[in-house]
Structures are given as structure tokens and as C-alpha cells.
Design a protein around this nucleic acid. Structure first.
Length: 275
DNA sequence: CGTTACCCCTGGAGGC
DNA sequence: TGCCTCCAGGGGTAAC
């Protein structure tokens, strides 16, 4: 489920409850998610205080006293991961793979498909972790603007849509918001990135930013429900203009939305409104 | 170097 | 009801 907005909203949901708390227990019920979970990780974590929670792309970064002998817990929700805060002692259900227990609450990670990731980085410099060091710019940062993306795509002949999803270029834009942003900007997802004008990139980038920020704001209004509920990601089913609307009428022109496959992922767009 | 195919895994939807 | 196929909001790696 999670794209950047879901990860950010999850982070915001944890902020009032987790930072400042000490890990009193760590339970790993699966030997591995995407990566193997070191057998010694639980004992390494117990006793450390979570000082802050930050985000890089779709990774959540838990600062566990990293500047005084600790390190960073790196969490990626993958395709089907979700976080919840539950009362201590709450029975776990299927696919509840990780518990981080604090004095008053337990952070529980559920991930049916196990594409998620849990990693430990010893020491303070988490940005130098191999998986983080190669990441591109944050889409909500000032650095990410139309001129920058135009410059970055001069030698890229791939279609723009899979490029927007390339985390080595820009992080956090997943399959839904890539389609939605391109629809808002009126750009065909099939168009080669190096055949899009600077002016159109100056429309696309704000469209991406607006799409992500709108979604964060919508999720943010129900943050408590999200992190505290055991329901799914219902609050994130923001109205999509084209995503998952194959053959439905386009909101702008009424002609049918088309679905195509690009780099193994479904793309939705309006052939009439997007060029 | 840039681009794409494949793979990891479980579950739900729909066809027969 | 069961069985099969396909699909799913991610991303690292290998091969072209």
C-alpha cells in the first residue's frame, strides 16, 4: 500500500507516542522479511531510547541513541506493510512480524507479503547506509523543481512514468501518484522523458508536489485512526482521477481511461487529455 | 550507462 | 465448492 504519503502519515502518527520512549522488548516472529533479521538485533535494541523518527523516501528511520553508542533502525513498509500502536499484551495476528514494546505502548509491524525491510545501522551516519546513499532527491524538497527534472532527463529516453518511479532519481513517487500526477499535468505516461519540454516539467513537478501534499493532508486528518486502528488503509483511498479506472470515463473529457503496462506496472491515463 | 525482466511473498478477485 | 490464473500501492539485482 504505502507510497510516500502513507509513510509520512504513519510517521506523524507515531510522533506523539514513540520519541523519548525506551525499547523494553523487541519481538521478531519472522526470521526474515525482504532481508534477514539478525538474531542479535533484539538484544541490541532493548534498552535503547528512540530519540526521533525521520523519513527518507519511503524508509522510516528510528534514531536509537545513534550519537551515543546506538544506531538506527531502518524500516520499509514494502508493498503491504503497516504500523500500528497497540496496548501492551494485545494478541498478535497472522502476519504481525515485529513488535517493539515501550512502557505504555507497543509498535506493531504487519506485512502479509513480507516485501518490507527491517535493518539496523550501527552508529550515527545513517545516510551512508548502502540502501540510503543511492537515493535521489526528496519530491517535497526545494531541490526538486521543473528545471532540475528537465536537466536530469536530457539523456533519458525511457517513458516518463517509470522514470518518476525510479528512486535513484526522485524518491517516494509510487505507482498510484505517478499516474495521478501525469494526468493532472496533462502529460502522457508513454512520452519519452527527453521529449518533454522544460515548460511542461515546470507544470509536472508542482503537480507531483500537490498530489503528494494533498494526500498527506487527507491522511493527516485521520492520523490517529490510521495508526491506532486495526482496519486497513481505507483512509488513503483518496479519490483517484485515473488510477484503477480502466474504461471509466475521464473526469475531464468523458472518454474512457486506458490501462497499459509499463516496466511491469499498470499505468492509467487518458489518451485524449494527456499528450 | 540506461532500460527492462525477473524475483521475493501472500491473498483476493474472477473465470471455469 | 474447488482450482486455476492473474493481479496488487516496492525495489534490488541481473541481464540485455
Amino acid at each position: 500500500m504505502p507510497e510516500l504519503p502513507e509513510v509520512e502519515v504513519s510517521r506523524q502518527g507515531l510522533l506523539p507516542f514513540v520519541p523519548g520512549q525506551r525499547i523494553v522488548d523487541a519481538i521478531f516472529r519472522a526470521p526474515r522479511l525482504r532481508h534477514e533479521i539478525p538474531a542479535a538485533l533484539a538484544s541490541r535494541l532493548i534498552g535503547l531510547r528512540v530519540d526521533s523518527i525521520s523519513r527518507r523516501g519511503k524508509y522510516l528511520l528510528f534514531d536509537c541513541e545513534s550519537r551515543c553508542g546506538g544506531g538506527w533502525l531502518i524500516l520499509h513498509l514494502g508493498m503491504s506493510g503497516s504500523l500500528r500502536l497497540v496496548a501492551p499484551g494485545t494478541p498478535h495476528q497472522k502476519h504481525d512480524h515485529v513488535d517493539l514494546a515501550f512502557a505504555q505502548t507497543t509498535l506493531r509491524f504487519r506485512d502479509p507479503r513480507r516485501f518490507g525491510t527491517l535493518l539496523w545501522h550501527e552508529g550515527a551516519d545513517v545516510e551512508r547506509h548502502p540502501l540510503l546513499a543511492v537515493l535521489g532527491v526528496e519530491p517535497l524538497s526545494d531541490e526538486f523543481d521543473g528545471d532540475w527534472l528537465f536537466a536530469q532527463t536530457r539523456r533519458r529516453s525511457a517513458p516518463i512514468k517509470p522514470l518518476l518511479m525510479d528512486s535513484h532519481l526522485v524518491v517516494g513517487i509510487g505507482n498510484i501518484y505517478a499516474s495521478e500526477s501525469l494526468f493532472q499535468a496533462g502529460i502522457s505516461p508513454l512520452r519519452a522523458a527527453n521529449r518533454i519540454s522544460r515548460e511542461r516539467y515546470r507544470v509536472l513537478v508542482p503537480a507531483i508536489r500537490a498530489t503528494l501534499e494533498t494526500s498527506i493532508a487527507a491522511g493527516g486528518s485521520s492520523v490517529r485512526d490510521y495508526v491506532h486502528s486495526d482496519g486497513g488503509a481505507g483512509c488513503f483511498q483518496i479519490s483517484c482521477a485515473v488510477y484503477d479506472r480502466h474504461r471509466e470515463p475521464c473526469a475531464k473529457c468523458g472518454r474512457p481511461v486506458r490501462s497499459v503496462r509499463q516496466a511491469g506496472r499498470s499505468t492509467f491515463y487518458c489518451p485524449h487529455c494527456q499528450r
